[in-house]
Design a binder for these strands. Structure first.
Lengths: 107, 107
DNA sequence: ATTATGTTTCGTATTTTTGCGAAATAAGAA
DNA sequence: TTCTTATTTCGCAAAAATACGAAACATAAT
């Protein structure tokens, strides 16, 4: 996108939103909100998808910057990327809260 | 998705997130956070995309329940869908805030 | 050196998304 | 009735997302 109206913030928000835009990925992020870390294998036991598919979802979350992985052979420990999560929090928070619905109603 | 782990909330969050997962749609929602309503034609003048493409983005936001349109010939007035926006606020808010990053760090 | 383990990458198929221009639509104005 | 206006729907093409199984990978254990 190249316009003076669509800003980097819009692009970044869209990138984060897109990453959360699949039930499996939403589930993973929610799981990481209740426990500090997780492993691909544990997720695979809960989810009705192939391990290779799960791996791709993790890859996408990582590409969007929402998670990061550290190798602990033979496993890989995934956890939230703090810095980017704060950014997502700010961007979503701004959008969601700024709308004062009491004053924002089409009659 | 059909698993006891992925809930309706995950599905709904993903649906909202997916709708926000494009710069143009993120822009539109942000615009609707600063002004009560907008018209497709006004958006079209700001955005570097075809009107038919813009129309599809509006259609998707509508399908996700984030906006609604009321006809005012020859225009259509778009505004936020209050009820669903509250739901989105709750779902995103829950996910984003629940993560206490001070206690959620992989060493 | 071989095997075992947890995970990813590769190759491929299917579906969905994104985008455009042309045509259709619906109602008000002339 | 015909024209104008704002927007959508249609038909299509190109790109991206989703999914799978098979093969590859990297290291630790045997």
């Amino acid at each position: 996108m190249n316009t003076k109206f669509i800003t980097n913030d819009h692009e970044q928000l869209a990138r984060f939103a897109k990453a959360l835009g699949h039930p499996v990925r939403a589930y993973i992020m929610e799981l990481l909100s209740t426990q500090t870390c997780c492993f691909s294998g544990d997720l695979a036991e809960d989810l009705p998808i192939a391990r290779s598919t799960l791996s791709q979802h993790l890859k996408e979350l990582k590409a969007a910057g929402l998670i990061q992985g550290t190798i602990e052979y033979p496993k890989i420990r995934y956890c939230i990327n703090r810095e980017n999560w704060e950014r997502a929090k700010t961007l979503f928070g701004h959008l969601l809260q700024s709308i004062d619905l009491t004053n924002n109603q089409c009659k």
